[in-house]
Design a protein around this nucleic acid. Structure first.
Lengths: 174, 174
DNA sequence: TATTGTTATACTCTATAACTATA
DNA sequence: TATAGTTATAGAGTATAACAATA
């Protein structure tokens, strides 16, 4: 709750039709419920947040190490936010950070054996929660359709440039 | 990153099949991207967070006022978290809190005209963002299916008791 | 005794801007 | 000049537990 300026050029926008509106709200609501439970499970069983789980998952499923920027874009994070999380994970011994031989500016992040162990220790409970909450009420067909639909949405959104780096200069935003 | 106990009774869990796993991750990823953009729009145009928007939306679409607990359950929040948010919204003049004639313990929350105004001022931009990011790549059929699927998931999750109140006593969780 | 709501507290997370170093 | 990453900072959000009042 900060300023509240007049809505930037939103004079006449076609409203969403009822189907769209309903879909929109139920999607966010359901995912919110899911996220809460997932967070709880990860915290309880592994002492990590979902973001940290995501970082570990990404590193565990990648042949080699990743740079901070690659990781930040993947996880949808600001770079400084990832630096913070990477600091925690490194301190916990779950990842390591080292120099990139190809680019002296970059930092390569790799998962440690402890990181892999934790990931695999937490995964079954994670799977259980998602199955119980998300997949139980769905048919195999639903799952396919849902995956297909969200993949298209994801690709559509990813088509726009990521925002891991803050724009250097902002054009005068009058 | 706190304790990290042994995973509670997760010895052998059937893994998710590839379709499920893919659906799961792409769902969370896409929604995460969407949430980020929505947050940004609401913050920029209305100076409110998505949670605050949700509270206003709920109150705007309800005939009468709601109690704090009803609101907390709807928004998937802890009660103390809602108290905090309600404090902000009240200070901003967007809602009011008053006694409940039927139950002297309860607090009734109502939206003010300023609250309605803000809600409707922010809504068009909100609709624009969700259309551009979520609905553009989808057919009308996709939207129906997605809504139908997520409604089933939501109802399934809502069937379990909400956790707005912290359980008083926890049974010895050996 | 259970429930509603608030408060106090402590902590996690996140983004912004400034900065260093390399390309 | 642009990019990779870190740091400092400052604020927002969240949950837990303890508490008071009512059912």
């Amino acid at each position: 709750m900060t300023d509240a300026r007049p809505a930037a050029g939103s004079g006449d926008v076609e409203p969403l039709d009822p189907a769209q509106l309903g879909t929109y709200f139920v999607l966010l609501e359901a995912v919110s419920l899911l996220q809460h439970q997932v967070e709880r499970q990860l915290r309880t069983e592994g002492g990590i947040s979902y973001v940290q789980f995501e970082v570990l998952a990404r590193l565990a499923h990648t042949p080699g190490p990743l740079t901070m920027t690659q990781l930040a874009d993947g996880v949808v994070y600001s770079r400084s936010g990832l630096t913070y999380q990477a600091g925690l994970l490194e301190k916990a011994g779950l990842i390591t950070r080292g120099p990139d031989p190809d680019d002296d500016r970059a930092t390569l992040v790799a998962i440690t054996q402890d990181g892999r162990d934790l990931f695999h220790r937490v995964l079954p409970g994670h799977v259980q929660v998602s199955r119980r909450l998300l997949f139980d009420p769905l048919t195999a067909d639903d799952v396919r359709q849902l995956g297909d639909i969200m993949a298209r949405v994801r690709d559509h959104m990813r088509a726009r440039p990521p925002r891991s780096a803050t724009p250097r200069k902002r054009r005068d935003a009058t």
